[in-house]
Amino acid sequence: MDGELGDFLRSRRARISPEDVGLTSYGRRRVPGLRREEVAQLAGVSVDYYIRLEQGRGPSVSDAVLDAVARVLRLDETEHAYLRTVARPDARRTPARRTPARTEPTARRVRPGLRLLLDLFDRAPAFVLGRRMDVLAWNALGDALSGFSRMPAAERNMPRQAFLDPGARELYPDWPAVAAETVAHLRLDAGLHQDDKELAALVGELSLKSEDFRRLWADHQVKAKTYGVKRMAHPVVGALTLPYETLAVPGEPDLSLVVYTPEPGSETAERIALLASWAAGGNAPEPRVER
């Protein structure tokens, strides 16, 4: 996406004050945070070089320079990796990872063995995420919890559900945190696939229709959703506290397996078991949305 590197660096500069890095603040500042000149000084590069980097005109920038900038801007591990990716997108992308032009849904890309693995989780809701956080496949319990099979294919997308479904705020008691994590993960995907027209269209749609999405997208937060806990107010079985694990799929760099892991013996586990019995009997309830 055009300007991604510069926008990211400016947003990281804005969150650090001169005092945070041992500098004395002087003069009136038109914008918050560090100036470009200060970042360049602390990173040990020329001001012109750093300006060219922010403008995306430094394709041959070295690891040492990026590491120095990351140190100055206090980037965490995910942000550091993201910086390297957006600073040198062509160097980080092999031909096999280039985003292909697609006109059909990608659900058929989920191989049979992975679908079988989903079905083996008989006590845990599970689903497969693809590019742009599209939901591509799920098990019976995941469907009973989330209602994926009853959604139009175009709506099986995490960001779209979080920001455009009016029931999402009721379903997620921690909706602000869920929304922020969703946008941070989507931006991470955007950095890896800067030429993805479908992703750009999704961002454009959400920006147009949701003020909350526009605000969060402008923050330039990046975060991988590898594990965590999600609270849900399910419309049938009630309050659920669901730890989850997100697993990489070997041989499928664009896919991930998400498994909810309710604590054995907990009230949530009992309610998930009730949901499973309904699913097995073909009487699964009608959830509003899922993430």
Results as ranks from 00 to 15, higher is better:
Arg123Tyr: 14
Leu73Phe: 10
Leu255Cys: 00
Arg29Tyr: 13
Leu199Asp: 00
Arg15Ala: 13
Leu117Lys: 04
Thr78Cys: 13
Glu4Lys: 06
Asn283Phe: 10
Met158Lys: 14
Ser46Gly: 14
Leu5Arg: 07
Asp48Gly: 09
Arg98Met: 05
Val21Tyr: 09
Asp76Arg: 01
Lys209Gln: 06
Ala43Lys: 03
Glu38Gln: 03
Leu53Pro: 03
Asp212Cys: 01
Ala162Ile: 11
Arg169Val: 04
Val45Glu: 04
Leu208Met: 05
Gly265Leu: 01
Asp212Gln: 02
His80Pro: 06
Asp196Arg: 03
Leu240His: 05
Asn157Ser: 11
Lys223Trp: 07
Lys230Ile: 06
Ala96Cys: 03
Leu274His: 03
Leu255Gly: 00
Met133Asn: 10
Pro264Gln: 12
Glu270Ile: 12
His80Arg: 12
Ile51Phe: 14
Leu206Phe: 05
Asp254Gly: 13
Ala68Asn: 14
Arg111Asp: 05
Arg150Met: 09
Leu257Ser: 01
Lys225Arg: 11
Leu257Met: 02
Ser11Glu: 03
Gly22Phe: 02
Val128Leu: 06
Gly44Tyr: 01
Asn139Thr: 02
Leu34Arg: 12
Leu145Trp: 11
Phe148Val: 10
Ala280Phe: 01
Met158Arg: 15
Arg15Gln: 13
Ala101Tyr: 12
Leu247Arg: 05
Arg74Pro: 02
Leu255Ile: 01
Ala153Gln: 12
Gly113Leu: 08
His185Ile: 08
Asn283Pro: 07
Pro59Cys: 10
Arg84Met: 08
Ile16Asp: 07
Pro125Ile: 02
Ala107Phe: 14
Glu267Asn: 14
Pro32Ala: 08
Ala248Ser: 06
Arg10Ser: 10
Arg52Gly: 08
Arg97Glu: 11
Leu73Met: 13
Asp134Phe: 14
Gly238Trp: 04
Leu186Ile: 07
Ala140Gly: 09
Ala81Gln: 15
Gly281Asp: 01
Ala68Arg: 15
Ala273Val: 02
Phe213Ser: 03
Ile16Ser: 02
Lys209Cys: 05
Ser266Glu: 12
Val110Ile: 08
Gly27His: 00
Trp138His: 10
Arg88Gly: 12
Val203Phe: 00
Glu267Phe: 06
Pro285Glu: 00
Arg231Leu: 00
Ala162Pro: 09
Arg98Gly: 06
Leu116Val: 12
Met158His: 13
Val21Thr: 09
Gly130Thr: 06
Arg291Met: 12
Leu216Cys: 00
Ala101Lys: 07
Ala124Asn: 15
Arg36Asn: 06
Tyr227Met: 13
Ala273Tyr: 00
Leu242Cys: 06
Ala168Gln: 07
Thr106Phe: 00
Leu208Thr: 04
Gly228Met: 02
Thr226Phe: 07
Ser25Arg: 04
Ser256Trp: 07
Arg123His: 15
Ser207Asn: 08
Gly191Ala: 08
Glu290Thr: 08
Val72Pro: 04
Arg156Cys: 09
Gly142Asn: 12
Pro112Ala: 12
Arg29Cys: 13
